[in-house]
Simulated assay, not measured.
Amino acid sequence: MTFRTNLSGVMKYKSFVPPKISEYSFDSDKTVLAELSAEFARLDKCIIDLSDDQRTRLIKTEAHDSWLLSKDTPSNPFSFSLFQPNENSENLAHATDYAVEAVTELPISSRLIRNVHYIVCQSPDYDKKYRGEYRTSPVWIGGVDAVLTDALFVPPVAEDMDFAITDLENYINYSPENVFIKAAVIHYQFEMIHPFIDANGRIGRLLNILFLLANGVLSYPVLLQSHVIARDYNRYCNAIQYVNENGDISLWIKYWLDLMAESVKYTIQAIKNLDYYD
């Protein structure tokens, strides 16, 4: 993988330079893709049969779980409890509603993604985090006391980020690749670009659902994926880091396809449990 050296001396740090998506090489298992398509079709039938209120509850559950995951406080991995409202998760649910409506008129693009971010970040917690704007300064990922020069990972700086975002938009809207393969690549690429100061994970997870919706995989934005990610969050991080270190996206794609299959199963089980809560 490619890294850019920035600044010099004690301030020197290296930032990730995302490859063009066309440079990734991988094989796709048509049997796995066909099975996943059948599982999503089964889920979609379950979702269509729900009432509007039940769908809303599931959308809010995913929003709440996504917010919990962003705070490193995932819910019980064996539970099927439906959401407990708070301002941040409610904002994410509102952003989902907006995105579902917007995608009927707009392509999945920077404009739509920034608008979604603006709604997600309607809270005093984000007053200085540039709601609805791509970052122009570096961010980094590491331990609690990590600084830019010793961070575990530094996403692309602005000039590399701008190019990567354009490449991602083109891939989302014009690549003929299988929809599930694209979903896996899009999620990895978006998270590695890390275009916002905060809320990248929540936006990335919503982007996955929105992409599946826009491509006819789902009829409604109902997929409980954040809870499934949280069950083994270290595996999620390790799968991403493997690509960063080796440039091989194949194992990530397998991981994401498996994760989507598990998310479908979990969502169907949660739907079956709705009667218990009604």
Rank of each mutant, 00 (worst) to 15 (best):
M1L: 11
S8T: 09
V10A: 15
K12Y: 02
Y13M: 13
Y13T: 01
S15C: 06
S15K: 06
S15W: 06
P18F: 01
I21Y: 03
E23G: 04
Y24M: 12
S28Y: 10
D29V: 09
E35F: 06
S37Y: 07
A38M: 00
A38H: 00
R42C: 08
L43C: 09
I48C: 11
D53P: 00
Q54W: 13
Q54A: 15
R55N: 03
I59K: 09
T61V: 05
A63V: 10
H64G: 07
S66R: 05
S70R: 11
D72N: 15
F78K: 05
F78P: 00
S89D: 06
A95R: 00
D97W: 02
E101W: 10
I113Q: 02
V120Q: 00
Y126M: 02
G132H: 02
G142Y: 08
G142C: 09
V144F: 15
L148D: 09
T149W: 14
T149V: 15
T149E: 15
T166I: 01
I172M: 15
Y174T: 15
Y174K: 14
E177L: 05
E177Y: 01
V179I: 15
F180R: 04
H187G: 04
Y188Q: 08
I193Q: 04
H194K: 07
H194C: 03
P195V: 01
I197S: 10
D198Q: 12
G201V: 04
G204D: 03
G204R: 05
I209Q: 11
G216A: 12
S219A: 12
Y220W: 13
L223P: 05
L224D: 03
I229M: 14
R235Q: 15
C237V: 15
Q241G: 07
Y242M: 03
N244V: 15
S250I: 01
W256C: 06
D258K: 13
M260W: 05
I271Y: 10
L274P: 11
D278F: 10
